[in-house]
Amino acid sequence: MNPRGGWALIKRTWASWMQHRSFFFLLAFGWMIPPLIYLFVWSTAAGGETVGGLTRGEFVAYYLILILVNQLTYAQTNWTVGDLIRDGSMNVWLLRPMSPIYNALSTEIAGKVVYMLFTAPVALVLAIFLRPEATFSLGNTLLFIPSLLFAWALRFFWGYWLALLAYWTTRAQAFLSLQDSLIFLLGGQVAPMVLLPGSMAWIARLLPFRYMVGFPVEVLMGILPSDELVFGLIAQAGWMVMAMALYLFLWCIGTRRYEAVGG
């Protein structure tokens, strides 16, 4: 552990990102659009009635929260891990007196702040125009915080172990594309999990992707019965531990292989 070095990294990364904020604002804008499309699609579909038990206003609330959660849990550093391994920069990180995961973590934290500077105000303006309807109970809000943290950790480590496959194949980014598509379909973007047709909902409930984005939103919205809530939290924690274990395992054999080959 090296908290001082980690904090210095966060500060440095943040400062340099603020220099290029327009670039990151553009990225954040791009990520915002797909959920926004489904916000419009579902709220139009609901009209004055309900679809799958949700009203127009609830769809708006669901997707506005999803936009925020999606950006808070999106681990874009995973995309650069492959490049670091291929071009040998990973060597530089291996030489420092801290684990390279700190580098990724600092980028993560710095990034979230920069993205939120753009996304939060935009979401607020959208909320004023689109009139969301939601009540957040204290219990749900308290449960939302750990489920959000778990979602972030799960998505981060899941993406990281996929990215570490770059030690063995030069095209590891294809796995990340696949992960993004699965999150889009099963993670609550295309529709809230409860609205997915039978078999798809069943798959979504078991696979890790729903627990990366959609689940915290469902928790905060209070649309889950309590047994589903408990099941979800356990599944989420389980997948998170699994992702971390896979990350540690691949990291160990990957770096050994890297050192053996000489980078």
Partner: peptide, 13 residues
């Protein structure tokens, strides 16, 4: 696949 499933999910409802 994402395109078609996206539309399909919607019209299931």
């Amino acid at each position: 696949v994402t395109g078609i499933l996206g539309v399909w999910v919607l019209f299931e409802q």
